[in-house]
Simulated assay, not measured.
Amino acid sequence: MFRVEKTGDNLVPRVADADAGVYLEWLVTGSRYTTEVFELLSASGGIPFTTSREYVVDPETGFKSTLFKFIAFGSAPRAQSRAKHLVNRTFRDDNEQQYWMKIAVEALLVFGTAFNGLEAPYKRYTQVELNGRIYTLEDFGYALGQK
């Protein structure tokens, strides 16, 4: 399971599943937090990706939520200094790409709006869309307040 951990420089934390050796690093944001660049890191290398961030109203509760959608997976813009090191990732097939995207979904949910997904004020505060399905922390067995 993922959790938020400090990095060596203590500047920007990362989301980590240390047991699986997978880490999510937030790299840069676009205009007014509408797009963001992340890198999923594992022993097999890095996978850069870009998301959009939308604010939606949850139909079940009426609460405002943040919804991430993938814009690109396996590539991301490298114009900013924190993203210059990125290398595009090619996948063997769609199954491999979907496998890694599902891991990225879980990591994004723990990331939340700014490394706060597990401390969200209510369920479904952060959501991620993948293949037309909306995922929440509960889909991966997490509970709010979990450390």
Rank of each mutant, 00 (worst) to 15 (best):
residue 66 T to Y: 03
residue 80 Q to G: 10
residue 76 A to P: 05
residue 72 A to F: 09
residue 79 A to T: 13
residue 54 E to G: 09
residue 73 F to C: 03
residue 68 F to Y: 15
residue 67 L to H: 04
residue 54 E to L: 14
residue 63 F to N: 15
residue 76 A to W: 00
residue 57 V to R: 03
residue 82 R to V: 12
residue 81 S to N: 11
residue 74 G to H: 04
residue 78 R to E: 02
residue 57 V to W: 01
residue 61 T to S: 11
residue 59 P to M: 00
residue 73 F to S: 08
residue 78 R to H: 02
residue 62 G to F: 10
residue 73 F to W: 06
residue 62 G to Y: 07
residue 77 P to S: 14
residue 81 S to V: 07
residue 77 P to N: 03
residue 61 T to A: 06
residue 55 Y to H: 12
residue 79 A to R: 06
residue 64 K to M: 08
residue 83 A to G: 07
residue 63 F to H: 04
residue 84 K to H: 12
residue 76 A to E: 00
residue 82 R to N: 15
residue 77 P to I: 07
residue 79 A to I: 07
residue 75 S to P: 08
residue 79 A to V: 13
residue 84 K to Q: 13
residue 63 F to M: 13
residue 78 R to C: 07
residue 73 F to M: 04
residue 65 S to N: 12
residue 70 F to T: 00
residue 67 L to C: 06
residue 71 I to H: 08
residue 64 K to P: 03
residue 81 S to G: 08
residue 63 F to G: 10
residue 83 A to C: 15
residue 63 F to T: 05
residue 78 R to L: 08
residue 67 L to Y: 10
residue 69 K to D: 15
residue 61 T to K: 10
residue 63 F to V: 07
residue 63 F to C: 11
residue 56 V to A: 02
residue 63 F to Q: 13
residue 82 R to G: 05
residue 62 G to S: 11
residue 76 A to L: 05
residue 55 Y to N: 04
residue 56 V to H: 01
residue 58 D to P: 02
residue 55 Y to Q: 07
residue 69 K to E: 15
residue 73 F to Q: 04
residue 62 G to H: 06
residue 68 F to N: 07
residue 57 V to E: 03
residue 66 T to L: 14
residue 82 R to P: 13
residue 56 V to N: 08
residue 65 S to T: 00
residue 77 P to Y: 09
residue 55 Y to P: 00
residue 57 V to Q: 09
residue 76 A to V: 13
residue 85 H to V: 11
residue 85 H to E: 12
residue 55 Y to R: 02
residue 85 H to Q: 14
residue 85 H to S: 02
residue 64 K to C: 12
residue 81 S to D: 09
residue 58 D to E: 14
residue 69 K to F: 08
residue 60 E to W: 04
residue 67 L to G: 10
residue 75 S to V: 11
residue 56 V to P: 06
residue 68 F to D: 08
residue 72 A to G: 10
residue 70 F to N: 02
residue 82 R to F: 11
residue 82 R to Y: 01
residue 82 R to D: 02
residue 61 T to Y: 09
residue 68 F to T: 05
residue 58 D to A: 12
residue 80 Q to K: 15
residue 78 R to M: 04
residue 59 P to N: 10
residue 83 A to Y: 02
residue 66 T to H: 08
residue 73 F to K: 08
residue 65 S to M: 09
residue 59 P to Q: 13
residue 61 T to E: 01
residue 77 P to A: 14
